[in-house]
């Protein structure tokens, strides 16, 4: 019996019968990564222009990037905003998810949906709204303003991840801990948190990524000294296209990939 005649599952569908599905899956996976695979080689080109495939190879654009004050400052800004967003969104989102999950209040579902809106509303809309609002409260071009806006975008993710973790957790454990003499706060930190900690780590990493990758809000509300890496990249694309962009993109892909791998590792650890 050859491979395509052998059963692919308990229902006796053969691998042969599933062939079209395998091909479709491969095409979809290729479509997902092809842009990345085009950008990475371009970043190692020696040419002045974006070129694929590159005719000559070099590390020139990486030197360009690491040697440029402007790029380094933008990178530093993005990293700072990303970390700060992570530090704000993770605890706030976790607290909100916990409160809504535990309360059992009638309005809890509604409030949960409300908290998810930044994820559902088009980001451009949020960007415009935030821009005009920040104009009034003088938060445009400030780190605090960017962190707040990115936090709003990251909180839905955190809440979804933490709520999912709480669902598979027996809250009676916290009750028992309290009956055994722990305050509510202590019960949370000693009993609940250790058991959802990998989900919290996942939520933190994804919050960082949400901010680090974010373009649209950054274009609107960051500028000058606080311009983020993504904002600079966007302007660079508009003004003068050179392979530095490809080099930076490659580095960002690398960072994202590493973080996502960490997320995968962390996610599979909470029981």
């Amino acid at each position: 019996m050859s491979w395509w005649q052998s059963p692919a599952s308990d229902t006796q569908v053969t691998h042969g019968g599933r062939l079209w599905l395998y091909i479709l899956a491969i095409i979809i996976m290729l479509l997902l990564v092809i842009p990345t695979f085009i950008v990475i080689p371009m970043s190692f080109s020696d040419s002045q222009y974006l070129e694929f495939p590159p005719s000559t190879w070099s590390m020139r654009w990486y030197h360009e990037y690491f040697g440029s004050n402007k790029w380094m400052r933008a990178t530093w800004t993005s990293l700072r905003i990303g970390v700060l967003t992570m530090l704000v969104a993770t605890p706030v989102g976790t607290m909100a998810a916990y409160a809504l999950y535990v309360s059992g209040h009638r309005a809890a579902r509604l409030i949960f949906m409300y908290m998810l809106t930044p994820m559902i509303v088009p980001v451009i809309l949020i960007a415009i709204g935030v821009f005009y609002f920040y104009g009034r409260v003088k938060l445009n071009n400030s780190i605090a303003g960017l962190v707040l806006a990115h936090t709003a975008l990251a909180i839905p993710l955190v809440m979804i991840i933490i709520t999912a973790a709480l669902r598979s957790y027996d809250l009676n454990q916290e009750r028992v801990a309290r009956s055994l003499g722990a305050t509510r706060l202590k019960a949370f930190f000693v009993i609940t948190l250790p058991q959802i900690k990998f989900s919290v780590i996942t939520a933190a990493l994804l919050s960082f990524l949400t901010s680090f990758d974010e373009v649209i809000v950054s274009i609107f509300v960051s500028g000058g000294k606080t311009a983020t890496l993504t904002k600079h990249m966007f302007s660079a694309l508009r003004d003068y296209i050179d392979p530095t962009i490809a080099a930076i993109s490659t580095i960002m892909v690398l960072i994202s990939t590493v973080l996502l791998l960490l997320v995968q590792l962390a996610g599979s650890r909470d029981k």
């Binding site: 027996d170 009676n172 454990q173 009750r175 028992v176 801990a177 309290r178 009956s179 055994l180 003499g181 722990a182 305050t183 509510r184 019960a187 009993i191 250790p194 058991q195 029981k271």
Partner: peptide, 20 residues
């Protein structure tokens, strides 16, 4: 009186042991 001050031992149907 909050639960942690009542000094009451509890056993739940699900046992609620701390798995960690």
């Amino acid at each position: 009186m909050p639960p942690h001050q009542r000094n009451v031992g509890m056993v739940f149907q699900s046992y609620a042991l701390f798995p960690h």
